[in-house]
Design a protein around this nucleic acid. Structure first.
Lengths: 131, 131
DNA sequence: ATTGACGTTTACGTTAACGTCAACTATATT
DNA sequence: AATATAGTTGACGTTAACGTAAACGTCAAT
């Protein structure tokens, strides 16, 4: 049901955030849910945007960066200049992500090494205990 | 020269941060440079720690998280309980990094898709112009 | 001897991303 | 009608990670 409508607390509980957070995201221009009087009505598209924002956060993006990237996903009808500028931004972002991937892989390798040292130390302790 | 000594501005300019930042890291317990009177004397080991902190930041870690992870790298002489706890933390961190890697790869793929759409749009505009 | 470059501590200011009230509205239920 | 439930808009508080400014020490060079 892609045309389902979500209340603010529906989305809040689903994504394990507070209503305040969703209002804040709207205030910052990351969301623009429909209204019925005062109440916010979140669409499926809004829900996807929330998921993208949270993924961005997990990657260490600021809300502003997330907003920019999410806006990339909806090119709309642009002129050539805008498209070129967008391609440039995509290249920049790609570079950032590339170094981040490299950094994460490094950290992972080092954790492997530390883990190996830990297990070796434990092994040694056990051998000493049974000697 | 692994025994070289760095001034605070040496490291600041090398890593493109301010002296204030290095003092702040010390204040937060991430660094503990030697002193000669008032002056801080940064060793090669301190330099490595700074690099680790900054890599952590690029990965979206808080300073506290970076400090914890860096401390993992120097197990020192621990007892079995500490080693087990450390192994647990390593596993947790490994899981976080794994999802982060997945998130980044997703973002990268989506950027690929947006880029393709952009280039296609530009292509179309060019063809229209020469028709 | 004073200027300038570099360092120090102390302390207050700032931004991002919300948390936490308070006071109010609307709707549904008992 | 009164209560409960879910929503709203301010407005102020909070934490992390520094920035910025003041006031001072030190040492070499002019």
């Amino acid at each position: 049901m892609p045309d389902r409508i979500y209340s603010i607390s529906d989305l809040a509980s689903e994504f394990d955030i507070t209503p305040r957070t969703l209002r804040f995201y709207e205030e910052k221009g990351l969301l623009a849910p429909a209204r019925q009087g005062q109440k916010r009505l979140f669409s499926h598209a809004d829900r996807v945007r929330v998921a993208l924002i949270l993924r961005g956060k997990r990657c260490g993006l600021s809300l502003e960066e997330s907003r920019d990237i999410i806006n990339m996903y909806e090119p709309g009808q642009n002129n050539a200049e805008q498209l070129h500028s967008l391609l440039g931004k995509i290249e920049e972002r790609r570079a950032v992500i590339a170094t981040q991937l490299a950094d994460l892989n490094e950290m992972m390798q080092e954790l492997d090494a530390v883990q190996a040292r830990c297990e070796a130390a434990l092994q040694t302790m056990q051998e000493e205990a049974t000697s």
